[in-house]
Amino acid sequence: MTTERKCRMQAKQVFGVVAATAALAGFSSVAHTDGDWGKYQVGDLRSGYTYAEPETRAIQDDDFENPAMLTLDYGAELWSAKDGEANKSCADCHGDAAKSMKGVGARYPVYYQPWGKLINVELRINECREKFMKAKPYKYESNEMLGMSAFVKYQSRDMPVNVDIGGPSKDFFLKGKEFYFQRRGQLDMACKHCHEDNAGNMIRANLLSQGHSNGFPTYRLKWQKVGSLHRRIRGCNSQVRATPYDYGSDEYVNLELYLAWRGRGLPVESPSVRN
């Protein structure tokens, strides 16, 4: 048995006691074994990768074994598939994604002049589809959108997250930050209560991570498929018994910018594998 395993077992025993008495949102602290996390740790910032069990990390470590790659392959196919009334593909304008999309996953969301607000990768894909391809927008959580957004972000693999929060982005960044610290839902909890104050502690039987966004879209074992950052945030909001905002809503896109800034320097891991 590895030290880490022992540690987790103790954690669960500790948790058992807590659960017996607990409020739904009871936290229990865990002595965590700090490893050498290499690129997955930058200063005090730790990717969600470092909070996953070794078996989950192993699935992400080998691109072949990562089931998210099936979805990404689909996105790669769509990249060069003509669609819409304009009969154009992404590749017709953007050419080789490895060149044209490099860095996009690291710097989005960005301020988008025509809208006068932020735009993330998913919304940018649909903007292209509607405006230039004259094609129907993808549904936010469709395999098409997940495949395409994973494919686009994958082109920035291992680049450090580096978003611009100045200039016209500033107000939206501040709104995102406010969201992060705002209590909500019947449990009256903010993002920060789990992911800042209690990262590394157990919430019931799960280890809380710092809640970084650098691995999205992610193959989540719970979902048994790839899902977007907004799906994950909606899950968090539901769990504190708050009404989630819509996929692609201004609230979540602003929050997305704050989250990216908060995890700046961590490598783009899309598409990652998480519990």
Binding site: R5, M9, K12, A52, E53, E55, T56, I59, L221, K222
Partner: peptide
């Protein structure tokens, strides 16, 4: 097999 499976959906 893992001693503790993080998620029962996908146990290697």
């Amino acid at each position: 097999l893992p001693q503790i499976a993080e998620n029962g959906n996908t146990v290697p």
